[in-house]
Design a protein around this nucleic acid. Structure first.
Lengths: 246, 246
DNA sequence: GTACATTGTGAACAGTGTTCTTTCGGCTTT
DNA sequence: AAAGCCGAAAGAACACTGTTCACAATGTAC
Protein backbone atom coordinates (compact mmCIF):
# COMPACT_ATOMS: atom_id res chain seq x y z
CA UNK A 1 0.00 0.00 0.00
CA UNK A 2 2.61 2.61 1.05
CA UNK A 3 5.97 2.77 -0.61
CA UNK A 4 7.66 4.93 1.96
CA UNK A 5 9.99 2.18 3.15
CA UNK A 6 11.80 2.01 -0.18
CA UNK A 7 15.36 3.18 -0.11
CA UNK A 8 15.77 6.51 -1.86
CA UNK A 9 16.52 5.97 -5.51
CA UNK A 10 20.23 6.57 -6.23
CA UNK A 11 20.97 9.68 -8.23
CA UNK A 12 22.31 7.83 -11.26
CA UNK A 13 18.97 6.18 -11.70
CA UNK A 14 17.12 9.44 -11.87
CA UNK A 15 16.73 9.91 -15.59
CA UNK A 16 16.67 13.64 -16.16
CA UNK A 17 16.25 16.16 -13.46
CA UNK A 18 13.99 15.17 -10.64
CA UNK A 19 12.42 11.87 -9.97
CA UNK A 20 10.32 9.83 -12.26
CA UNK A 21 6.84 10.25 -10.77
CA UNK A 22 7.05 7.56 -8.13
CA UNK A 23 3.62 8.43 -6.88
CA UNK A 24 1.50 8.97 -9.94
CA UNK A 25 -0.09 12.34 -9.44
CA UNK A 26 -3.84 12.48 -9.31
CA UNK A 27 -5.23 14.26 -12.32
CA UNK A 28 -8.63 14.83 -13.82
CA UNK A 29 -7.75 12.33 -16.52
CA UNK A 30 -6.94 9.58 -14.04
CA UNK A 31 -10.09 10.30 -12.08
CA UNK A 32 -12.23 10.09 -15.18
CA UNK A 33 -10.50 6.87 -16.18
CA UNK A 34 -11.26 5.34 -12.81
CA UNK A 35 -14.83 6.55 -12.97
CA UNK A 36 -15.29 4.71 -16.26
CA UNK A 37 -13.87 1.54 -14.75
CA UNK A 38 -16.35 1.75 -11.89
CA UNK A 39 -19.18 2.61 -14.27
CA UNK A 40 -18.54 -0.38 -16.49
CA UNK A 41 -18.17 -2.69 -13.54
CA UNK A 42 -20.98 -1.53 -11.23
CA UNK A 43 -23.33 0.56 -13.35
CA UNK A 44 -24.49 4.13 -12.98
CA UNK A 45 -26.45 3.64 -9.78
CA UNK A 46 -23.38 2.42 -7.93
CA UNK A 47 -21.04 5.00 -9.40
CA UNK A 48 -20.09 6.94 -6.29
CA UNK A 49 -17.22 9.21 -5.43
CA UNK A 50 -16.13 6.72 -2.80
CA UNK A 51 -15.95 3.91 -5.30
CA UNK A 52 -13.92 6.03 -7.68
CA UNK A 53 -11.56 6.99 -4.87
CA UNK A 54 -11.25 3.37 -3.80
CA UNK A 55 -10.39 2.37 -7.35
CA UNK A 56 -7.55 4.89 -7.24
CA UNK A 57 -6.46 3.89 -3.73
CA UNK A 58 -7.06 7.38 -2.49
CA UNK A 59 -9.25 9.19 0.00
CA UNK A 60 -12.56 10.54 -1.19
CA UNK A 61 -11.74 14.09 -0.28
CA UNK A 62 -8.68 13.99 -2.51
CA UNK A 63 -10.96 13.91 -5.53
CA UNK A 64 -12.43 17.24 -4.62
CA UNK A 65 -9.08 18.92 -5.15
CA UNK A 66 -9.33 18.19 -8.85
CA UNK A 67 -13.06 18.05 -9.37
CA UNK A 68 -15.64 20.46 -8.03
CA UNK A 69 -18.63 18.19 -7.98
CA UNK A 70 -19.90 14.81 -8.87
CA UNK A 71 -21.73 16.77 -11.52
CA UNK A 72 -18.47 18.00 -12.92
CA UNK A 73 -17.09 14.49 -12.96
CA UNK A 74 -20.09 13.35 -14.97
CA UNK A 75 -19.62 16.30 -17.28
CA UNK A 76 -16.02 15.28 -17.87
CA UNK A 77 -17.14 11.75 -18.65
CA UNK A 78 -19.73 13.14 -21.02
CA UNK A 79 -17.16 15.25 -22.80
CA UNK A 80 -14.81 12.35 -23.23
CA UNK A 81 -17.42 10.76 -25.46
CA UNK A 82 -16.67 13.30 -28.13
CA UNK A 83 -12.91 12.89 -28.24
CA UNK A 84 -11.85 11.81 -31.68
CA UNK A 85 -15.16 12.49 -33.33
CA UNK A 86 -14.47 13.52 -36.87
CA UNK A 87 -17.30 14.42 -39.15
CA UNK A 88 -16.64 14.42 -42.88
CA UNK A 89 -16.74 17.53 -45.00
CA UNK A 90 -20.24 18.25 -46.23
CA UNK A 91 -21.10 16.60 -49.52
CA UNK A 92 -24.40 17.60 -51.12
CA UNK A 93 -24.60 14.25 -52.89
CA UNK A 94 -24.42 12.05 -49.81
CA UNK A 95 -25.63 14.34 -47.05
CA UNK A 96 -28.33 11.90 -45.98
CA UNK A 97 -25.80 9.15 -45.44
CA UNK A 98 -23.52 11.58 -43.65
CA UNK A 99 -26.29 12.47 -41.25
CA UNK A 100 -26.98 8.82 -40.62
CA UNK A 101 -23.32 8.20 -39.93
CA UNK A 102 -23.40 10.97 -37.38
CA UNK A 103 -26.19 9.26 -35.50
CA UNK A 104 -24.66 5.82 -35.91
CA UNK A 105 -21.36 6.84 -34.45
CA UNK A 106 -23.17 8.60 -31.64
CA UNK A 107 -25.03 5.46 -30.73
CA UNK A 108 -21.82 3.50 -30.97
CA UNK A 109 -20.11 5.81 -28.54
CA UNK A 110 -23.02 5.63 -26.16
CA UNK A 111 -22.97 1.86 -26.19
CA UNK A 112 -19.25 1.75 -25.53
CA UNK A 113 -19.75 2.16 -21.80
CA UNK A 114 -22.42 0.73 -19.61
CA UNK A 115 -25.19 3.16 -18.71
CA UNK A 116 -23.49 5.88 -20.73
CA UNK A 117 -26.84 6.87 -22.18
CA UNK A 118 -28.08 7.76 -18.73
CA UNK A 119 -25.17 10.11 -18.23
CA UNK A 120 -25.68 11.63 -21.64
CA UNK A 121 -29.34 12.23 -21.03
CA UNK A 122 -29.76 15.03 -18.57
CA UNK A 123 -26.97 17.15 -19.95
CA UNK A 124 -27.81 20.31 -21.76
CA UNK A 125 -25.99 19.45 -24.95
CA UNK A 126 -23.99 22.61 -25.44
CA UNK A 127 -20.72 22.21 -23.68
CA UNK A 128 -18.03 24.16 -25.48
CA UNK A 129 -16.14 21.04 -26.52
CA UNK A 130 -18.76 19.89 -28.94
CA UNK A 131 -19.64 23.15 -30.59
CA UNK A 132 -17.36 22.25 -33.54
CA UNK A 133 -19.31 19.07 -34.09
CA UNK A 134 -22.63 20.84 -34.08
CA UNK A 135 -21.22 23.36 -36.48
CA UNK A 136 -20.17 20.64 -38.86
CA UNK A 137 -23.50 18.89 -38.54
CA UNK A 138 -25.14 22.13 -39.53
CA UNK A 139 -22.84 22.41 -42.50
CA UNK A 140 -23.92 18.98 -43.69
CA UNK A 141 -27.57 19.85 -43.28
CA UNK A 142 -27.04 23.06 -45.18
CA UNK A 143 -25.38 21.15 -47.98
CA UNK A 144 -28.53 19.06 -48.09
CA UNK A 145 -30.50 22.15 -48.92
CA UNK A 146 -32.47 22.30 -45.70
CA UNK A 147 -34.01 25.63 -44.74
CA UNK A 148 -32.65 27.36 -41.67
CA UNK A 149 -35.57 26.65 -39.39
CA UNK A 150 -35.28 22.92 -40.10
CA UNK A 151 -31.55 22.95 -39.47
CA UNK A 152 -32.17 24.60 -36.13
CA UNK A 153 -34.34 21.73 -34.92
CA UNK A 154 -32.65 18.85 -36.74
CA UNK A 155 -29.82 18.61 -34.24
CA UNK A 156 -32.22 18.20 -31.35
CA UNK A 157 -34.25 15.70 -33.31
CA UNK A 158 -31.28 13.53 -34.15
CA UNK A 159 -29.56 13.59 -30.78
CA UNK A 160 -32.84 13.05 -29.00
CA UNK A 161 -33.56 9.96 -31.07
CA UNK A 162 -30.06 8.64 -30.78
CA UNK A 163 -29.91 9.11 -27.01
CA UNK A 164 -33.44 7.95 -26.36
CA UNK A 165 -33.10 4.83 -28.44
CA UNK A 166 -29.82 3.90 -26.84
CA UNK A 167 -31.18 4.60 -23.40
CA UNK A 168 -34.00 2.19 -24.01
CA UNK A 169 -31.58 -0.37 -25.35
CA UNK A 170 -29.51 -0.01 -22.23
CA UNK A 171 -32.53 -0.35 -19.99
CA UNK A 172 -33.69 -3.62 -21.42
CA UNK A 173 -30.29 -5.10 -20.90
CA UNK A 174 -29.90 -3.70 -17.40
CA UNK A 175 -33.32 -4.40 -16.00
CA UNK A 176 -32.99 -8.10 -16.55
CA UNK A 177 -29.29 -8.52 -16.25
CA UNK A 178 -29.19 -12.22 -15.50
CA UNK A 179 -31.18 -13.76 -18.31
CA UNK A 180 -29.80 -13.77 -21.80
CA UNK A 181 -30.98 -11.40 -24.46
CA UNK A 182 -32.46 -14.30 -26.37
CA UNK A 183 -34.54 -15.39 -23.40
CA UNK A 184 -35.87 -11.92 -22.76
CA UNK A 185 -36.82 -11.17 -26.32
CA UNK A 186 -38.68 -14.43 -26.87
CA UNK A 187 -40.43 -14.03 -23.52
CA UNK A 188 -41.49 -10.51 -24.41
CA UNK A 189 -42.59 -11.57 -27.86
CA UNK A 190 -44.65 -14.36 -26.36
CA UNK A 191 -46.20 -11.93 -23.92
CA UNK A 192 -47.37 -9.62 -26.67
CA UNK A 193 -48.52 -12.51 -28.78
CA UNK A 194 -50.54 -13.92 -25.90
CA UNK A 195 -52.63 -10.81 -25.33
CA UNK A 196 -56.34 -11.11 -26.04
CA UNK A 197 -56.50 -10.64 -29.82
CA UNK A 198 -59.90 -8.99 -29.79
CA UNK A 199 -58.70 -6.12 -27.62
CA UNK A 200 -55.12 -5.90 -28.89
CA UNK A 201 -55.14 -7.04 -32.51
CA UNK A 202 -52.24 -4.86 -33.60
CA UNK A 203 -50.01 -5.61 -30.63
CA UNK A 204 -50.53 -9.30 -31.24
CA UNK A 205 -49.86 -8.97 -34.94
CA UNK A 206 -46.74 -6.87 -34.49
CA UNK A 207 -45.27 -8.87 -31.63
CA UNK A 208 -42.49 -10.36 -33.69
CA UNK A 209 -41.61 -7.14 -35.45
CA UNK A 210 -41.42 -5.16 -32.21
CA UNK A 211 -38.94 -7.33 -30.39
CA UNK A 212 -37.88 -9.94 -32.89
CA UNK A 213 -35.83 -7.60 -35.02
CA UNK A 214 -32.29 -6.56 -34.27
CA UNK A 215 -31.72 -3.32 -32.44
CA UNK A 216 -29.45 -2.32 -35.29
CA UNK A 217 -32.25 -2.82 -37.76
CA UNK A 218 -34.78 -0.91 -35.69
CA UNK A 219 -32.34 1.93 -35.16
CA UNK A 220 -31.66 2.14 -38.89
CA UNK A 221 -35.33 2.24 -39.70
CA UNK A 222 -36.08 5.02 -37.24
CA UNK A 223 -33.12 6.93 -38.56
CA UNK A 224 -34.36 6.56 -42.09
CA UNK A 225 -37.76 7.90 -41.12
CA UNK A 226 -36.19 11.00 -39.61
CA UNK A 227 -33.90 11.60 -42.57
CA UNK A 228 -36.79 11.20 -44.98
CA UNK A 229 -38.71 13.76 -43.01
CA UNK A 230 -35.77 16.13 -43.15
CA UNK A 231 -35.29 15.53 -46.86
CA UNK A 232 -38.92 16.39 -47.48
CA UNK A 233 -38.01 19.93 -46.48
CA UNK A 234 -35.01 20.14 -48.77
CA UNK A 235 -35.09 22.90 -51.35
CA UNK A 236 -32.13 21.59 -53.27
CA UNK A 237 -32.97 20.03 -56.65
CA UNK A 238 -31.11 16.79 -55.98
CA UNK A 239 -32.92 16.07 -52.75
CA UNK A 240 -34.97 12.99 -53.64
CA UNK A 241 -32.24 10.60 -54.64
CA UNK A 242 -34.27 7.94 -56.32
CA UNK A 243 -35.78 5.75 -53.61
CA UNK A 244 -37.98 8.41 -52.08
CA UNK A 245 -41.44 7.05 -51.57
CA UNK A 246 -44.14 9.26 -53.09
CA UNK B 1 -47.85 17.41 16.45
CA UNK B 2 -49.44 14.74 18.69
CA UNK B 3 -53.08 14.93 19.59
CA UNK B 4 -53.06 12.49 22.45
CA UNK B 5 -53.63 15.16 25.08
CA UNK B 6 -57.06 16.07 23.71
CA UNK B 7 -59.96 15.21 25.92
CA UNK B 8 -61.98 12.34 24.49
CA UNK B 9 -64.67 13.68 22.20
CA UNK B 10 -68.03 13.56 23.99
CA UNK B 11 -70.49 11.05 22.53
CA UNK B 12 -73.01 13.67 21.42
CA UNK B 13 -70.45 15.10 19.11
CA UNK B 14 -69.85 11.89 17.30
CA UNK B 15 -72.03 12.32 14.25
CA UNK B 16 -73.24 8.90 13.15
CA UNK B 17 -71.87 5.71 14.47
CA UNK B 18 -68.20 5.94 15.17
CA UNK B 19 -66.17 8.91 14.48
CA UNK B 20 -65.81 10.63 11.20
CA UNK B 21 -62.55 9.22 9.87
CA UNK B 22 -60.34 11.22 12.20
CA UNK B 23 -57.24 9.59 10.87
CA UNK B 24 -57.49 9.32 7.10
CA UNK B 25 -56.12 5.92 6.17
CA UNK B 26 -52.90 5.85 4.25
CA UNK B 27 -53.36 4.55 0.73
CA UNK B 28 -51.29 4.30 -2.39
CA UNK B 29 -53.34 7.10 -3.86
CA UNK B 30 -52.63 9.47 -1.00
CA UNK B 31 -48.94 8.62 -1.11
CA UNK B 32 -48.74 9.31 -4.82
CA UNK B 33 -50.61 12.57 -4.31
CA UNK B 34 -48.15 13.67 -1.68
CA UNK B 35 -45.24 12.63 -3.86
CA UNK B 36 -46.49 14.92 -6.60
CA UNK B 37 -46.77 17.79 -4.17
CA UNK B 38 -43.17 17.29 -3.09
CA UNK B 39 -42.06 16.89 -6.69
CA UNK B 40 -43.66 20.12 -7.80
CA UNK B 41 -42.32 21.99 -4.83
CA UNK B 42 -38.77 20.66 -4.52
CA UNK B 43 -37.96 18.94 -7.80
CA UNK B 44 -36.92 15.41 -8.59
CA UNK B 45 -33.55 15.54 -6.87
CA UNK B 46 -35.13 16.36 -3.55
CA UNK B 47 -38.01 13.92 -3.90
CA UNK B 48 -37.26 11.54 -1.05
CA UNK B 49 -39.33 9.06 0.87
CA UNK B 50 -38.76 11.13 3.98
CA UNK B 51 -40.13 14.25 2.35
CA UNK B 52 -43.19 12.40 1.15
CA UNK B 53 -43.75 10.99 4.61
CA UNK B 54 -43.33 14.42 6.16
CA UNK B 55 -45.89 15.84 3.76
CA UNK B 56 -48.34 13.23 5.01
CA UNK B 57 -47.40 13.72 8.64
CA UNK B 58 -46.38 10.12 8.92
CA UNK B 59 -43.27 8.05 9.63
CA UNK B 60 -41.13 6.99 6.69
CA UNK B 61 -41.52 3.32 7.42
CA UNK B 62 -45.28 3.63 7.17
CA UNK B 63 -44.91 4.20 3.44
CA UNK B 64 -43.29 0.83 2.97
CA UNK B 65 -46.47 -0.91 4.06
CA UNK B 66 -48.18 0.34 0.93
CA UNK B 67 -45.28 0.70 -1.45
CA UNK B 68 -42.48 -1.77 -2.02
CA UNK B 69 -39.83 0.59 -3.24
CA UNK B 70 -39.08 4.10 -4.18
CA UNK B 71 -38.98 2.59 -7.65
CA UNK B 72 -42.55 1.43 -7.28
CA UNK B 73 -43.60 4.87 -6.12
CA UNK B 74 -42.05 6.37 -9.23
CA UNK B 75 -43.79 3.76 -11.32
CA UNK B 76 -47.12 4.69 -9.78
CA UNK B 77 -46.44 8.34 -10.55
CA UNK B 78 -45.54 7.41 -14.09
CA UNK B 79 -48.73 5.44 -14.53
CA UNK B 80 -50.85 8.29 -13.27
CA UNK B 81 -49.75 10.27 -16.29
CA UNK B 82 -51.89 8.08 -18.49
CA UNK B 83 -55.10 8.34 -16.54
CA UNK B 84 -57.79 9.86 -18.71
CA UNK B 85 -55.86 9.56 -21.94
CA UNK B 86 -58.34 9.01 -24.70
CA UNK B 87 -57.17 8.57 -28.24
CA UNK B 88 -59.69 9.09 -31.02
CA UNK B 89 -60.84 6.33 -33.31
CA UNK B 90 -58.55 5.95 -36.29
CA UNK B 91 -59.46 8.10 -39.25
CA UNK B 92 -57.53 7.49 -42.49
CA UNK B 93 -58.17 11.06 -43.56
CA UNK B 94 -56.60 12.78 -40.59
CA UNK B 95 -54.22 10.19 -39.22
CA UNK B 96 -51.28 12.56 -39.38
CA UNK B 97 -53.04 15.08 -37.22
CA UNK B 98 -54.14 12.33 -34.87
CA UNK B 99 -50.54 11.23 -34.45
CA UNK B 100 -49.49 14.76 -33.75
CA UNK B 101 -52.21 15.11 -31.17
CA UNK B 102 -50.92 12.01 -29.47
CA UNK B 103 -47.49 13.56 -29.10
CA UNK B 104 -48.87 16.95 -28.15
CA UNK B 105 -50.96 15.58 -25.34
CA UNK B 106 -48.00 13.52 -24.18
CA UNK B 107 -45.83 16.58 -23.94
CA UNK B 108 -48.61 18.42 -22.19
CA UNK B 109 -48.87 15.70 -19.58
CA UNK B 110 -45.14 15.68 -19.08
CA UNK B 111 -45.06 19.42 -18.55
CA UNK B 112 -47.88 19.25 -16.05
CA UNK B 113 -45.52 18.37 -13.23
CA UNK B 114 -42.03 19.61 -12.60
CA UNK B 115 -39.29 17.18 -13.64
CA UNK B 116 -41.89 14.69 -14.82
CA UNK B 117 -39.85 14.04 -17.94
CA UNK B 118 -37.03 12.72 -15.81
CA UNK B 119 -39.33 10.22 -14.19
CA UNK B 120 -40.74 9.22 -17.54
CA UNK B 121 -37.31 8.69 -19.03
CA UNK B 122 -35.81 5.60 -17.57
CA UNK B 123 -39.00 3.58 -17.56
CA UNK B 124 -39.34 0.74 -19.97
CA UNK B 125 -42.52 1.96 -21.58
CA UNK B 126 -44.60 -1.16 -21.40
CA UNK B 127 -46.47 -1.17 -18.14
CA UNK B 128 -49.75 -2.95 -18.53
CA UNK B 129 -51.77 0.18 -17.98
CA UNK B 130 -50.77 1.79 -21.22
CA UNK B 131 -51.05 -1.17 -23.53
CA UNK B 132 -54.48 0.05 -24.67
CA UNK B 133 -53.00 3.36 -25.72
CA UNK B 134 -50.22 1.75 -27.71
CA UNK B 135 -52.80 -0.44 -29.34
CA UNK B 136 -54.83 2.53 -30.39
CA UNK B 137 -51.75 4.36 -31.62
CA UNK B 138 -51.02 1.37 -33.79
CA UNK B 139 -54.54 1.43 -35.12
CA UNK B 140 -54.11 5.04 -36.19
CA UNK B 141 -50.82 4.28 -37.88
CA UNK B 142 -52.40 1.35 -39.66
CA UNK B 143 -55.19 3.57 -40.86
CA UNK B 144 -52.49 5.79 -42.31
CA UNK B 145 -51.39 2.92 -44.50
CA UNK B 146 -48.02 2.40 -42.84
CA UNK B 147 -46.36 -0.97 -43.32
CA UNK B 148 -45.96 -3.18 -40.27
CA UNK B 149 -42.26 -2.67 -39.77
CA UNK B 150 -42.72 1.10 -39.68
CA UNK B 151 -45.59 0.82 -37.22
CA UNK B 152 -43.36 -1.26 -34.96
CA UNK B 153 -40.76 1.49 -34.67
CA UNK B 154 -43.03 4.54 -34.90
CA UNK B 155 -44.12 4.30 -31.29
CA UNK B 156 -40.56 4.39 -30.06
CA UNK B 157 -39.75 7.23 -32.41
CA UNK B 158 -42.63 9.36 -31.25
CA UNK B 159 -42.32 8.75 -27.54
CA UNK B 160 -38.57 9.16 -27.69
CA UNK B 161 -38.93 12.54 -29.36
CA UNK B 162 -41.70 13.65 -27.07
CA UNK B 163 -39.87 12.66 -23.91
CA UNK B 164 -36.47 13.85 -25.06
CA UNK B 165 -37.74 17.21 -26.18
CA UNK B 166 -39.64 17.77 -22.98
CA UNK B 167 -36.71 16.65 -20.89
CA UNK B 168 -34.54 19.24 -22.54
CA UNK B 169 -37.21 21.86 -22.03
CA UNK B 170 -37.34 20.98 -18.38
CA UNK B 171 -33.58 21.13 -18.04
CA UNK B 172 -33.20 24.60 -19.39
CA UNK B 173 -35.77 25.87 -16.97
CA UNK B 174 -34.33 23.96 -14.02
CA UNK B 175 -30.65 24.58 -14.53
CA UNK B 176 -31.09 28.29 -14.26
CA UNK B 177 -34.05 28.55 -12.01
CA UNK B 178 -33.59 32.09 -10.81
CA UNK B 179 -33.29 34.06 -14.01
CA UNK B 180 -36.30 34.55 -16.20
CA UNK B 181 -36.80 32.65 -19.41
CA UNK B 182 -36.38 35.83 -21.37
CA UNK B 183 -33.02 36.54 -19.79
CA UNK B 184 -31.70 33.08 -20.46
CA UNK B 185 -32.78 32.90 -24.04
CA UNK B 186 -31.34 36.25 -25.01
CA UNK B 187 -28.13 35.45 -23.18
CA UNK B 188 -27.83 32.15 -24.99
CA UNK B 189 -28.64 33.72 -28.30
CA UNK B 190 -26.00 36.35 -27.72
CA UNK B 191 -23.51 33.67 -26.82
CA UNK B 192 -24.05 31.82 -30.08
CA UNK B 193 -24.06 35.01 -32.04
CA UNK B 194 -20.76 36.08 -30.47
CA UNK B 195 -18.82 33.00 -31.53
CA UNK B 196 -16.02 33.54 -34.04
CA UNK B 197 -17.88 33.62 -37.36
CA UNK B 198 -15.04 32.11 -39.36
CA UNK B 199 -15.06 28.90 -37.33
CA UNK B 200 -18.79 28.75 -36.54
CA UNK B 201 -20.61 30.42 -39.42
CA UNK B 202 -23.74 28.31 -39.13
CA UNK B 203 -24.04 28.52 -35.37
CA UNK B 204 -23.78 32.28 -35.61
CA UNK B 205 -26.29 32.48 -38.41
CA UNK B 206 -28.80 30.20 -36.70
CA UNK B 207 -28.47 31.72 -33.23
CA UNK B 208 -31.85 33.38 -33.30
CA UNK B 209 -33.67 30.40 -34.78
CA UNK B 210 -32.22 27.98 -32.24
CA UNK B 211 -33.30 29.76 -29.11
CA UNK B 212 -35.39 32.65 -30.29
CA UNK B 213 -38.36 30.58 -31.33
CA UNK B 214 -41.04 29.29 -29.00
CA UNK B 215 -40.68 25.80 -27.61
CA UNK B 216 -44.15 25.14 -28.95
CA UNK B 217 -43.04 26.08 -32.44
CA UNK B 218 -39.88 24.01 -32.31
CA UNK B 219 -41.80 21.02 -30.99
CA UNK B 220 -44.33 21.31 -33.79
CA UNK B 221 -41.64 21.50 -36.41
CA UNK B 222 -39.81 18.42 -35.14
CA UNK B 223 -43.11 16.61 -34.95
CA UNK B 224 -43.89 17.52 -38.52
CA UNK B 225 -40.54 16.20 -39.69
CA UNK B 226 -41.21 12.86 -38.04
CA UNK B 227 -44.74 12.60 -39.40
CA UNK B 228 -43.54 13.46 -42.88
CA UNK B 229 -40.96 10.72 -42.61
CA UNK B 230 -43.64 8.29 -41.51
CA UNK B 231 -45.96 9.38 -44.28
CA UNK B 232 -43.24 8.78 -46.83
CA UNK B 233 -43.63 5.10 -46.03
CA UNK B 234 -47.39 5.09 -46.42
CA UNK B 235 -48.77 2.74 -49.02
CA UNK B 236 -52.28 4.16 -48.91
CA UNK B 237 -53.27 6.21 -51.97
CA UNK B 238 -54.40 9.22 -49.97
CA UNK B 239 -51.15 9.56 -48.07
CA UNK B 240 -49.72 12.78 -49.50
CA UNK B 241 -52.41 15.20 -48.50
CA UNK B 242 -51.38 18.11 -50.65
CA UNK B 243 -48.54 19.94 -48.91
CA UNK B 244 -46.02 17.15 -49.14
CA UNK B 245 -42.73 18.53 -50.36
CA UNK B 246 -41.38 16.58 -53.34
C1' DG C 1 17.49 24.80 5.21
C1' DT C 2 13.40 27.08 5.85
C1' DA C 3 8.92 28.81 4.22
C1' DC C 4 5.27 27.99 1.15
C1' DA C 5 1.61 26.21 -1.43
C1' DT C 6 -0.36 22.30 -3.10
C1' DT C 7 -2.18 17.67 -2.40
C1' DG C 8 -3.86 13.86 0.26
C1' DT C 9 -5.89 12.31 4.85
C1' DG C 10 -9.45 11.07 8.35
C1' DA C 11 -13.25 12.41 10.58
C1' DA C 12 -17.50 14.46 10.52
C1' DC C 13 -22.21 16.29 8.88
C1' DA C 14 -26.45 16.01 6.78
C1' DG C 15 -28.89 13.43 3.92
C1' DT C 16 -30.57 9.07 1.47
C1' DG C 17 -33.29 4.14 0.90
C1' DT C 18 -34.54 0.34 3.52
C1' DT C 19 -35.39 -2.93 7.40
C1' DC C 20 -36.15 -4.31 12.10
C1' DT C 21 -38.69 -4.48 16.39
C1' DT C 22 -42.06 -2.41 19.05
C1' DT C 23 -46.37 -0.10 19.83
C1' DC C 24 -50.82 1.14 18.72
C1' DG C 25 -55.75 1.19 16.88
C1' DG C 26 -59.72 -0.70 15.18
C1' DC C 27 -62.11 -4.95 14.10
C1' DT C 28 -63.84 -9.46 15.01
C1' DT C 29 -64.98 -13.00 18.04
C1' DT C 30 -66.58 -14.76 22.03
C1' DA D 1 -69.20 -6.00 26.79
C1' DA D 2 -64.50 -7.96 27.20
C1' DA D 3 -60.81 -10.32 24.98
C1' DG D 4 -58.08 -11.15 21.45
C1' DC D 5 -56.00 -10.36 17.14
C1' DC D 6 -53.89 -8.56 13.16
C1' DG D 7 -52.70 -5.12 10.02
C1' DA D 8 -50.79 -0.52 10.14
C1' DA D 9 -47.91 3.08 12.01
C1' DA D 10 -43.77 4.53 14.84
C1' DG D 11 -39.02 4.80 16.08
C1' DA D 12 -34.56 3.50 15.88
C1' DA D 13 -31.00 1.62 13.38
C1' DC D 14 -27.92 0.23 9.27
C1' DA D 15 -25.34 1.02 5.40
C1' DC D 16 -24.82 4.03 2.17
C1' DT D 17 -24.45 8.75 -0.34
C1' DG D 18 -22.11 13.79 -1.56
C1' DT D 19 -19.56 17.22 0.54
C1' DT D 20 -16.64 19.89 3.85
C1' DC D 21 -13.47 20.64 7.45
C1' DA D 22 -9.05 20.95 10.02
C1' DC D 23 -4.85 18.69 9.88
C1' DA D 24 -0.58 16.24 8.07
C1' DA D 25 2.50 15.10 4.45
C1' DT D 26 4.59 16.36 0.31
C1' DG D 27 7.45 18.39 -2.93
C1' DT D 28 8.80 23.31 -4.81
C1' DA D 29 10.93 27.82 -4.42
C1' DC D 30 13.69 30.96 -2.29
Amino acid sequence: MSQQDDVPTPPWERPRKRQAPARIPLTRERIVDAAFVVLDRDGFDKLSMRQVAAKLGVAVSALYVHVDDKDELLRLMYNRMFEGVDLPDPDPETWQEQIKDFARSGRERLLRHRDMARISMGHVPFTGELLPHIEKLFAILKAGGLPDKVMAIAGDLLSTYMEGFTLEENMWRERMGEASWQTISTETENYFASLPPDRFPNLVALADLMVGETNDYRFELGLDIIVRGLASYSVSPSAPDGDEAP
